[in-house]
Design a binder for these strands. Structure first.
Length: 480
RNA sequence: GCCGAGGUGGCAGAAUGGUUAAUGCGACGGACUGCAGAUCCGUUUCCUGGGGGUUCGAUUCCCUCCCUCGGCUCCA
């Protein structure tokens, strides 16, 4: 296992990562409440933790990655009511869309997506335990609240002092609470909502308790790593700590907290409730998954990034295309001729440099997942290889694989450079070269009118033909 | 008001108690090309919010001020 250091939001320091029972790592990331389509900001958090899981696995850790789904809450109920729909069905639909986006983005590292409503019996057990132990109280309507005053460590993660909070700053104070900082863990049902029987009457789980029950059941009372966007630090993660540690008596609930920086748009946090969102699905459609991953990983995960429509992803498209060029050429050659293709061996110093770079990439990423530095190093490799692009044609399969090693590293950890299906299979792969041969003959006899006609005909079919000094290449036109 | 994270070139965005502050985008110039496109090469010397302090040396550490963003019981 490689030595990894990461910034822990609880201690506010970069620390060496030591799992409770190596090589196993329990990773929990707060997933989304699927009441609306996912936006570009959500994608950032999930791509980042996908990278974290991929990298840890590469380095020998056995990561069990859980990402929850809050499939029932006030917003879902409100949205469903507007559309005369069932909240659980609405959540299911949005979740499936979200999974499709994640699949397209190459986020495949999550082992399990638990749904909150599948854990109601366990949630009731935890609520009951908290009441029994005196940490929670039952209000007159049958709702159950956690009493923050009973848990002195409350506020350790966020640095907040309960006395300094401004109750009602953004959300109205619930009159059933003993104290404004208390939070609901079991909500008495209003007629028409999905509800479950409980000792306190029909109701449904509060948000915070869902997570502690699922992590407790799936990862244990104490586990290694908890991640999410930093907007969840207060109150959600503070509440998770209080609930779990109060209910189990075991602390700390989690050893390392990782929080990702937020994506803003027009200077404000991108947020469903503000409405300044840019659809994740649309961004993938327009730019492809690789450009989006590049966008996310091209900044340190903890820094805030501003999303500028019409600019941010366009810039990344240019940069990524340049970065990926040698990787694409190598992949094309290996795809065409197979891994055993004949040719010259690669010069030893170049092969060595590739190996050294891979080591450098690993150590860079192992220091608090600095994907930006890794990408900068990859640009260095691309610069070096682009000078050799005309010579790649003459190298043997093993040599190409050696030169590809840094890109293969990025495929594994960053999820970049993955070929989205071959563009060169099927009938096109046979027919287009025939047409290009005819065009080449036309060009060589000076019949440029015919050459241009063939190029235009192909263009109309969505195939772009590009000449370079020695050869002609073709590709499918960009989707937009 | 309180808590937290920040302020780096035209833009995005890293890093560091010490030679030219990474990388990319953009811009400009050139190469290649029948044309188009793509690609490549070069240039972009004057970039670390203001003021103090510590130090031989600060963009980095400390204090203070200003500004921005996030949170204050909806949120990735």
């Amino acid at each position: 296992m490689r030595r990894v250091s990461l910034y822990d939001s609880m201690t506010r320091a970069t620390r060496g990562f030591a799992p409770i029972s190596p090589p196993r790592v329990g990773l929990y990331v707060c997933g989304l409440t699927p009441y609306a389509p996912a936006h570009v900001g959500h994608g950032r958090t999930f791509v980042i933790f996908d990278m974290v899981a991929r990298a840890l696995r590469r380095w020998g850790y056995r990561v069990f990655y859980v990402q929850n789904v809050t499939n029932l809450d006030d917003k879902l109920i409100a949205r469903a009511a507007e559309a005369d729909d069932d909240p659980l069905a609405l959540a299911e639909r949005h979740f499936l869309d979200f999974r499709r986006s994640m699949e397209r983005l190459g986020v495949r590292s999550v082992n399990y997506y638990p749904f909150a409503t599948d854990y109601v019996p366990e949630i009731l057990d935890q609520v009951r335990a908290l009441v029994d132990r005196g940490f929670a109280y039952v209000a007159s309507d049958g709702s159950v609240y956690f009493e923050v005053a009973k848990f002195p460590r409350y506020g350790a993660l966020s640095g907040q002092k309960v006395t300094a909070l401004q109750p009602g700053a953004r959300v109205e104070v619930d009159p059933r609470k003993r104290s404004p900082e208390d939070f609901v863990i079991w909500k008495a049902a209003t007629p028409g909502e999905p509800s479950w029987e409980s000792p306190w009457g029909p109701g449904r789980p509060g948000w915070h308790v869902e997570d502690t029950v699922m992590t407790g059941k799936l990862l244990g009372a104490r586990y290694d790593l908890h991640g999410a966007g930093l907007d969840l630090i207060f109150p959600h993660h503070e509440a998770e700590i209080a609930l779990s540690e109060a209910a189990t008596g075991l602390a700390p609930m989690v050893n390392y907290w990782m929080h990702t920086g937020l994506v803003s748009m027009t200077g404000e946090k991108m947020s469903k409730s503000i409405g300044n969102v840019s659809s994740l699905e649309q961004a993938i459609d327009d730019f492809g998954p690789a450009v989006l991953r590049f966008y996310y990983l091209n900044a340190h995960y903890r820094s805030a990034v501003d999303f500028v429509p019409g600019k941010s992803l366009e810039e990344c498209r240019e940069a990524y295309a340049r970065l990926a060029l040698p990787a694409t050429r190598i992949a094309e050659l290996l795809e065409r001729d197979g891994p055993d293709r004949a040719g010259d061996p690669v010069p030893a110093e170049l092969a060595d440099a590739a190996g050294e770079l891979v080591e450098q990439l690993d150590s860079t990423l192992a220091e608090d997942f600095n994907s930006r530095e890794a990408i900068a190093a990859l640009f260095g490799w691309t610069r070096r290889l682009t000078e050799l692009v005309p010579q790649l044609e003459h190298l043997d399969g093993a040599g190409l694989a050696q030169l590809d090693a840094p890109y293969a590293w990025a495929r594994e950890t960053l999820g970049l450079f993955e070929r989205e299906g071959s563009t060169r299979t099927g009938a096109w792969a046979r027919v287009v070269p025939l047409l290009l041969d005819a065009r080449a003959r036309a060009r060589s006899r000076g019949d440029f009118a015919e050459a241009d006609r063939i190029r235009e005909e192909l263009r109309a079919l969505g195939i772009v033909v590009e000449d370079s000094s020695g050869s002609t290449r073709w590709r499918f036109a960009d989707p937009s």
